[in-house]
Design a binder for these strands. Structure first.
Lengths: 253, 253
DNA sequence: GACTAAAGTTTCATGGGATGGAAGTTTCTG
DNA sequence: CAGAAACTTCCATCCCATGAAACTTTAGTC
């Protein structure tokens, strides 16, 4: 009866809307005004206002003096109990710290999440080069050191499924030919580590190794370095030690 | 007008329930079955099932093969964009790593949140002693090194408000007398660091210093050590350097 | 492997809470 | 200090969340 019925998959359901609102907060939007949220979610202002208000009351969002909303401490606190933080991050952090001290380079820890590399942690210093990866961020599997490792140790089927989709090519050096990637991944499995050279960012490369548990690759550690500092042998051995140490720590708990 | 309108605190509202469900995940409950969630929230099973299902579909929760729910990667990802993670943690991590390497002790970073010390990060190793504090956890202000610092640099009014409430006394050494605490806090302000001795845990003590920004104490860094390793002078100077370094990093961005 | 208790899932009639247009209020901006 | 943009409140309408009950699956026992 109502003439203007929103036809297709009505994105109704309060909860879904709330989750959509929270999902607006991403690397590019860490602080948003109500209007911006309404625009991003395409929700009516009044509805948006109400939901955001409830989320704020619950501590899931917090409003700054600049009238911008940010992710609240309550949500952050809950997230710290995700297995990701609880087991992996917590176990790996001391080792990552050592790795960072030893190499002075960008150190990253990632897991596989929805067909992408999810960066669980990273340590960056002044000495190290700027990177795109950031904790909580996703990057493609085939253009990053940690990503290649994570992909290489997947099942044949999963790998083919990944290769079947269109692959982004952020730099001219990015390898996007399925066949070339298959060879690359086979090398990773054979050597036990991956290398990338300018496949994600111009001027830098990376090396990564798997963290194995019960014969499965549960995560990957890697370093990102300036191309001319890519000292494979030294880095691989340091990384391998670190991976073993993290794996031991994981089992220890 | 509306005849039977129950005006008083109707504990309704889907969203609030959803937030309550998510809040069930705390240090003691990182994995919960549906039934457990229903019990904790006192919600009817069917209602709980529906909400949990929606949260799972949105990636806010994830169901393991053990049919237990855990905090999902989506929620975790969003939380990484909290100012806490984005600015503080990210800026402080390299310094904390160095601190950890230098001292080999438990290193913690905390902010003030709802009248408690919220641990933003901690680094623990095999060498260091076990502690209760964990990233994402809350502890009282008056029984922890970082807590005393955070409290000491609050306004007079806020301090008195804190002292006015009943103060938990986890160990016999915990200082809960308002007057004794006032003196203690004055010392912290005078010296620029705090010391605790067995006020939270038997056998261990802690030292902490403030991280200042624009004349305000925005966070505190501390170490937790075995009592007989509490080498005040050395630790204070190391911590002060670290705090300055973190503050600089915060401004740099 | 049958039996059973507990955990999880689906169903559905009902009414209470969500909805969003519109009007009112505050806060920027030039 | 206008004028606009951002934000907040209001409220009649109606849709969707509700939860008891029935049903299905899983885990534990002999």
């Amino acid at each position: 009866m109502s003439p203007a019925r929103v036809e297709s998959g009505a994105p109704t359901a309060l909860l879904e809307r709330a989750m959509e609102i929270l999902s607006c907060f991403d690397p590019k939007h860490s602080a948003l005004t109500l209007t911006q949220i309404a625009e991003l979610t395409k929700l009516p202002m009044s509805t948006c206002h109400r939901i955001v208000g409830t989320l704020e009351a619950g501590g899931f969002l917090s409003k700054g003096s600049d009238r911008k909303f940010r992710v609240g401490t309550k949500l952050w606190t809950i997230a710290q109990h995700a297995p990701l933080s609880e087991r992996l991050r917590e176990s790996a952090l001391p080792t990552l710290a050592r790795l960072y001290e030893e190499t002075g380079e960008n150190v990253t820890l990632a897991v596989l999440d929805r067909g992408q590399a999810l960066y669980v942690d990273r340590l960056v210093g002044e000495r190290s080069i700027p990177t795109i990866s950031r904790a909580g961020g996703h990057l493609p599997l085939h253009t990053t050191g940690v990503g290649k490792v994570l992909l290489a140790y997947q099942s044949e089927k999963a790998i083919e499924q990944y290769l079947a989709q269109p692959l982004p090519k952020p730099t001219p050096q990015s390898i996007t030919q399925p066949d070339a990637l298959r060879r690359d991944l086979a090398d990773v499995r054979k050597n036990g580590y991956s290398i990338t050279r300018q496949e994600m960012t111009r001027g830098s490369g990376s090396i990564a190794v798997p963290i194995m548990r019960n014969g499965r690759c549960v995560a990957a550690v890697g370093v990102i370095v300036h191309l001319n500092r890519l000292d494979t042998n030294r880095l691989v051995s340091t990384l391998t030690d670190a991976a073993a140490s993290i794996a031991a720590e994981l089992d220890g708990h």
